[in-house]
Computed example of a mutant assay.
Amino acid sequence: MMPVVWLSGTSGVGKSTAGHGMLRAMAERGVTAAFVDADQVRLAAGVLAEETELVASGLAALAPRYREAGARLLLVAGLVDGPGHLARLLPGADRERILLCHLSADAATLRERIHHRGWAVERADEAVAYAERVDTGRVDLHLDTGGMTRERVVDHLAAVTLERLGPVLAEAAPSERAADTARSDGRVLLVTGPGGVGTSTIGFGAFSRMAGEGRAVAYVDTRQLGLLGADPNGRHLSGLRADNARALIGTLTAGGARTVVVGADPDTARSLGDEAESVVLRARPATLEERLRLRSEGVGPPLPGDPRKGIGGEGLRRAIARSVEEGASIEARLPKARTLSTDGVEPSALVEAILEDRDEPGPR
């Protein structure tokens, strides 16, 4: 496996934020990096595989595909409970090619950040308790992110990465070929639509509903599966996102998932459409514009690395124009898909409509 920078620490320390920031920081330093949020490869319920096993198999499937796409460094954000746990997450990896960074912050800072992002705020105390008990021995870097800006954290991590892993980054990478993706025997439910229509919200909602019913189900967000280089959200990476999604669907079904819900952008969905039961979400242009403006202001679920958050001016106008164009063309790209209008419809009703004709096996 290529060299790895693993960002560990409890919820709220800034692992995912740092990982996304390091993509550009490493590119500016001449190193093409790929980023994987470990949470995004283990979203499953009712399956036999443990979370550690799902993360390990997911990384093993994705790393060679990123390497073939040009990555020289793999960035991973995820919990590591100690040196033994790291060995299980990256079995067979050379420890000299891994930089394990433990990020931390004091209890007050953790609670403030978790409440500010507005997601899973009820787990703030759990995050603080985890930070107090986790084994941080034998890590390569301790970094207290309290009082540090995102830019300072990213710059420090990038500098330490070059200092510690510079020699192995300069070496020719070991030959690494991605294994062929086995065709999944499970059901794949693909949810797609133009930017701002609510694909992630509705797709994750469908996953959560099925998980609550005791189904063996998993969720894949393809937007998290093509994070490579300085432009990780570019349309040019849709093929990589689709290939990575197929690989991850394979690891999740091998781990016991009978249904995998996939949230995908239109370009990626076009590559996956023939392999899945597809649902296209649509909305009027005025609705898409309103939703994208709200996303740019930070309204909505906290999506890691959301490219729409904070944009304005010409950038926002381009995003709106692209979304409207996607909305006008996506149904032609997926002619066999079911189409659901989201105008004036609550997310829960859309989830119900998507799942009303299920024929997958019941709870195990």
Results as ranks from 00 to 15, higher is better:
3 P>N: 08
16 S>R: 11
18 A>P: 01
22 M>P: 10
26 M>L: 13
29 R>C: 00
30 G>M: 09
30 G>Q: 08
31 V>Y: 03
32 T>I: 08
33 A>N: 06
38 A>N: 01
41 V>E: 05
47 V>C: 02
48 L>A: 15
53 E>G: 04
57 S>A: 13
57 S>H: 09
59 L>W: 06
65 R>K: 10
66 Y>A: 01
67 R>W: 13
72 R>H: 12
72 R>N: 09
73 L>C: 01
75 L>Q: 03
77 A>W: 02
79 L>K: 06
79 L>V: 14
80 V>T: 07
82 G>F: 12
82 G>R: 09
85 H>R: 01
85 H>Y: 01
89 L>G: 07
97 R>M: 00
98 I>T: 15
98 I>K: 06
99 L>S: 07
100 L>V: 09
107 A>N: 07
108 A>L: 12
114 I>S: 10
118 G>K: 03
118 G>S: 05
119 W>H: 08
120 A>K: 13
123 R>W: 00
123 R>Y: 02
126 E>T: 14
129 A>K: 06
129 A>P: 04
136 T>E: 11
137 G>C: 06
144 D>P: 04
152 R>F: 15
159 A>M: 10
162 L>R: 12
162 L>Q: 14
171 E>D: 15
171 E>P: 09
174 P>L: 05
185 D>A: 15
186 G>A: 01
187 R>D: 03
191 V>C: 15
194 P>A: 15
195 G>C: 07
196 G>W: 02
198 G>N: 05
199 T>M: 01
204 F>S: 11
205 G>H: 15
207 F>D: 07
212 G>D: 14
214 G>Q: 12
217 V>N: 12
219 Y>G: 05
219 Y>H: 14
225 L>W: 02
227 L>A: 03
227 L>C: 00
230 A>G: 06
231 D>K: 08
231 D>C: 02
240 L>N: 06
249 I>G: 07
250 G>L: 10
255 G>Y: 10
259 T>E: 00
273 G>N: 14
275 E>W: 04
280 V>E: 05
288 L>N: 12
292 L>P: 00
294 L>K: 14
295 R>G: 03
297 E>P: 00
305 G>E: 04
305 G>C: 02
309 K>E: 13
314 E>Y: 06
320 I>K: 07
321 A>H: 02
322 R>N: 04
326 E>F: 11
326 E>R: 12
329 S>T: 13
335 P>K: 04
336 K>Q: 06
336 K>W: 05
340 L>F: 02
340 L>D: 02
344 G>W: 05
345 V>T: 11
345 V>N: 00
347 P>S: 12
349 A>F: 12
354 I>S: 06
356 E>R: 15
360 E>R: 09
363 P>Y: 05
364 R>Y: 10
